[in-house]
Structures are given as C-alpha cells and as structure tokens.
C-alpha cells in the first residue's frame, strides 16, 4: 500500500468516526466503539451495510439497539446484533 492509499484509508476511518457522532451518548458509544474495534474485519458488503445503517435516524437506531423494534432489512438487523455484541464493558 503506498502513502496515498494509506491516507485515503485513514481519512475513510475518520469520516466514519465523525458519522458515528450522533445525538445520543448510547449511539456514540455503540457506533464509535464498533468502528474502532471491528469495522476493519467486515467484508466489503458488510461495510456497505454499515454505511447504510448510518443513514438511519437516531431514534430508529436506538430502538433497534435496545430491542424495542427490529429493522425490516435483515442485513441491518444482523449488523445491529453484531454491534451490540461488540460492546466492551
């Protein structure tokens, strides 16, 4: 990987971290923690699903994470479970 590509990967990571800044502390912790620890292990398709997840509203995400509702999109629903499981106490 050359320097230019490295910069791009780092910028991509920072962009994602900024998108994970939400209006609620719970979401900040869940999403930012996941990007820091687990995002790089996702497949290309899973990364696209994560991008899609970030477009959901804060309230919907909160309800998915705290099991008050389930996403219709199965890929999103599975990712929500992975994110919940990735939390370190």
């Amino acid at each position: 990987m050359n320097n230019e590509e490295q910069v791009t990967v780092a910028q991509q990571h920072q962009r994602l971290m900024w998108q994970c800044r939400r209006g609620m502390l719970e979401l900040d912790i869940l999403l930012q923690g996941f990007v820091e620890r687990c995002y790089h292990d996702l497949s290309a398709t899973e990364k696209l699903t994560f991008d899609r997840l970030l477009t959901y509203s804060d309230q919907d995400l909160l309800e998915y994470f705290f099991q008050q509702a389930q996403a219709d999109d199965k890929d999103i629903a599975n990712l929500v479970i992975s994110i919940r499981n990735a939390i370190t106490p």
């Binding site: 800044r21 939400r22 209006g23 309230q59």
Partner: peptide
C-alpha cells in the same frame, strides 16, 4: 452544524 442536523442532541 458540526454534525448532520437531525443528529443534534435535541433527539435525546
């Protein structure tokens, strides 16, 4: 806004 507007803390 430093984040997308509907991600402001009012949602909390």
């Amino acid at each position: 806004s430093k984040v997308f507007p509907t991600r402001s803390h009012t949602v909390a």
